[in-house]
Write a protein that binds this DNA or RNA. Sequence first.
RNA 1: UGGGCCGGCCAGACGGUCGCGUCGAAGGCACGCCCCGCGAGGGGAACGACUUCGCCGAGGAACGUCCGGGCUCCACAGAGCAGGGCGGUGGGUAACACCCACCCGCAGCAAUGCGCGAGAACAGUGCAACAGAGAGCAGACCGCCACGGGCUUCGGCCCGGGGUAAGGGUGAAACGGUGGUGUAAGAGACCACCAGGGGCCCGAGUGAUCGGGCUCGCUAGGUAAACCUCGCCCGGAGCAAGGUCAGACAGACACCGUUAACGCUGCUCGCCGAGGUGUCGGGUAGACCGCUAGAGGGCUGCGGCAACGUAGUCCCGAGAGAGAUGGCCGUCGAAGGGAAGCGAUUCCUGGAACAGAACCCGGCGUAUCGGCCGGCCCACUUG
Length: 95
Amino acid sequence: MRRGRRTSTPHAVVYRVSGEPSGPRFGVIVSKQVGGAVVRNRIRRRILAICASSLSTVSASELIVVRVLPGAHEASWDTLRSEIGDGLRRAVTAS
RNA sequence: UGGGCCGGCCAGACGGUCGCGUCGAAGGCACGCCCCGCGAGGGGAACGACUUCGCCGAGGAACGUCCGGGCUCCACAGAGCAGGGCGGUGGGUAACACCCACCCGCAGCAAUGCGCGAGAACAGUGCAACAGAGAGCAGACCGCCACGGGCUUCGGCCCGGGGUAAGGGUGAAACGGUGGUGUAAGAGACCACCAGGGGCCCGAGUGAUCGGGCUCGCUAGGUAAACCUCGCCCGGAGCAAGGUCAGACAGACACCGUUAACGCUGCUCGCCGAGGUGUCGGGUAGACCGCUAGAGGGCUGCGGCAACGUAGUCCCGAGAGAGAUGGCCGUCGAAGGGAAGCGAUUCCUGGAACAGAACCCGGCGUAUCGGCCGGCCCACUUG
């Protein structure tokens, strides 16, 4: 995360670094400030679903970490998808 | 019909699409392994990555981690002290602080609910704001009362030392209540009834306790989640317990110790027995077992008021690694809100609470949108 390129979205921060071309790998960080276990689980599953649908835009050597900010549980699915999808695109295209 | 009390159950449904995890089956092959070969190479087994298919995959609270157990290790799991827990009685249970029944007290017309329910006249010590004259061997502020003295408009007033707990006032609480006798005025001082308490006796009950009789004028203090006393219970640590296998490395120094250190428990005893502790430095952060079928549920029979026990029968298979059990879309959808209608009802809107297993159980506590079912109580109406 320290070395990675940071891209901010209203409800999350996307970190990206290039690594071995073993397929893109995704990680999600949801702190306890965001909510209880149920809320954090739901957000993590949504983020992973967005990442899965954006696989075509990410090359095989990327390591992506999404850190979720407090308040993200109030965002709807559509805004979350457009925000995170846009964040992923910007993180990948910016070199 | 309207209020209310108690108990049990459910925890959105269906479809589409894209996904996740354990296990099983099939496929599958790189390094590595085994066999043959001098070698190029050939053959084989199974693990793992991967692919496909199939089964299964969160809760009533999975939660808080507050109690109680199982399990594992700590000598052989021991003794005493200290410390902690519990506290009506009798049962249930592996055990409990839980559950059931009963007792007592309180609340309610009742169904029922509530009580951290031992001991305060069978020991001792302490504590109690404010108000008030006085608050724990009670207390004369006002008042009431006779007596002595003074004054008097003859109604009484003032002063003095006394009597008095009936009345006023204060308070959460003022040392039984009502009526009478009595008295200067009063008082369980005495009497009747009522309420309570002590002692003795009888009866019912396993018991807490209840009922009755006789007697004593005995008349209440509260607080033990204050010390304390009494009775019963409790050894410590926890699945990162504990065990097996594989692998890596490098030790150095100080202190304690086989005259018993360290450990077992805070202390004493007792036990064990040759290493232990600390600092610096180095290495590894793997696999497997434990690991989920259990004090497990449903139904029926029997015993029991019940909790529960017991016999038969049927049903249930998450278990991983910081951790899978899901994301989205559509249809249907409960409460709530709005409109129309006398009404049954119809239409629109709305859109599902609290919350995520981590060794396993039994409880308790807490969170929670709502719905369904059953039993009971009270009031009113009708028959």
